[in-house]
């Protein structure tokens, strides 16, 4: 009977692995039948472009969720880094003209915010959702305070090229997102941290027994996520040509929806950055399809909310949890 249990477990694994992809394909076919424009090259590139920022953000968030933690500071960090990068390139408020050198600065600030998340969460032992909620709001507050509620306009075409420029007809933002994905995939598959993230998310005690520096890894992963959010902030600023505190509104929701819908379990240990890519496309395709079908854009958050519930309900191995809070 033990063996039977094992097979049913891997059966569940199989379902988890392929269900998101099946959903994505079904969605594409359905929307394509409804509106043939969906399948046009132009729309395809539009889809890729709108997936770029969510992909970058999801790369960071996936690692955190794989550890069984959560990061609610996405919007705070993205807003902060977008505002800072806007002020460092040629703009209508400050006189800095760092050009592309502003990018690593903004990413580093994202990384530092993530580091703060990690250090507070690990050292003070505060639950991650509370820590990141507080730090995220602080980030949002800093972004608002720097600009005093105003908007900064970017006047640096080289910087905006990061999002708007095209190579082989595909926007730069997409190439950057692809690069971010490859980096994340390498981290996940080819580094020690990658394996340790899974180990911590599956069973922290076993991870400790194996001599894994659990605390350091947790902090490092939060900092790493901050770097990705920083890059996300840069892309957002480049795309809109401006920076303001509300630039990241709705990003947290999309990010968590995408990660969870892609099949990464909130309980940790199950999933991957590849899943998150599929999740991003499910969310983006759905949003695109809704626009094509003439559904009001404000319905999207509602649909995403329902998607989260449905995905989590389908994927969560509830037998493992006795008490849920």
């Amino acid at each position: 009977m033990q063996t039977r249990k094992a097979t049913s477990f891997s059966y569940l694994e199989q379902w988890r692995r392929w269900a998101p992809l099946a959903v994505l394909i079904a969605l594409c076919i359905l929307i394509g039948l409804f509106n043939p424009n969906f399948l046009s090259t132009g729309n395809f590139i539009r889809l890729l472009n709108s997936a770029a920022i969510p992909v970058v953000l999801c790369m960071g968030a996936t690692f955190i969720i794989l550890m069984g933690s959560i990061d609610l500071s996405v919007e705070g960090i993205v807003a902060l880094t977008a505002v800072i990068v806007s002020l460092l390139v040629a703009n209508d408020i400050t006189t800095y003209k760092l050009g592309l050198f502003a990018v690593p600065v903004a990413m580093a600030i994202g990384g530092i915010m993530g580091l703060v998340n990690g250090v507070v969460h690990v050292k003070l032992k505060t639950p991650s959702f509370m820590t990141t909620l507080g730090i995220g709001f602080a980030g949002l507050g800093i972004a608002t305070a720097i600009l005093g509620g105003l908007t900064v306009r970017i006047a640096d075409p080289t910087f905006r090229y990061l999002s708007l420029g095209r190579i082989l007809g595909i926007p730069m933002a997409v190439w950057i997102a692809l690069a971010a994905f490859l980096v994340a995939l390498t981290i996940q598959q080819r580094t020690r941290i990658g394996a340790w993230i899974y180990a911590i998310g599956t069973d922290e005690v076993t991870a400790r027994f194996a001599g894994i520096p659990v605390e350091k890894t947790r902090i490092l992963v939060f900092a790493l996520a901050g770097l990705f959010y920083g890059l996300g902030g840069v892309l957002a600023a480049a795309q809109f040509g401006q920076g303001h505190a509300l630039i990241a509104q709705g990003r947290l929701f999309t990010t968590i929806t995408a990660v969870v819908v892609g099949g990464t379990a909130l309980s940790g240990g199950v999933g991957s950055v590849v899943n998150s890519i599929i999740g991003v496309f499910i969310v983006v395709v759905l949003a695109n399809g809704m626009v094509l079908m003439g559904i009001e854009p404000y319905v999207q958050q509602g649909v995403q909310g329902l998607l989260i519930i449905a995905a989590v309900a389908l994927a969560l191995d509830r037998s493992r949890l006795s008490v849920v809070k």
Partner: peptide
């Protein structure tokens, strides 16, 4: 750990 490969499990923490 079910989410890791056999090899990753054997050498966990000693990579």
């Amino acid at each position: 750990l079910p989410s890791l490969t056999v090899a990753q499990n054997i050498f966990l923490g000693r990579e």
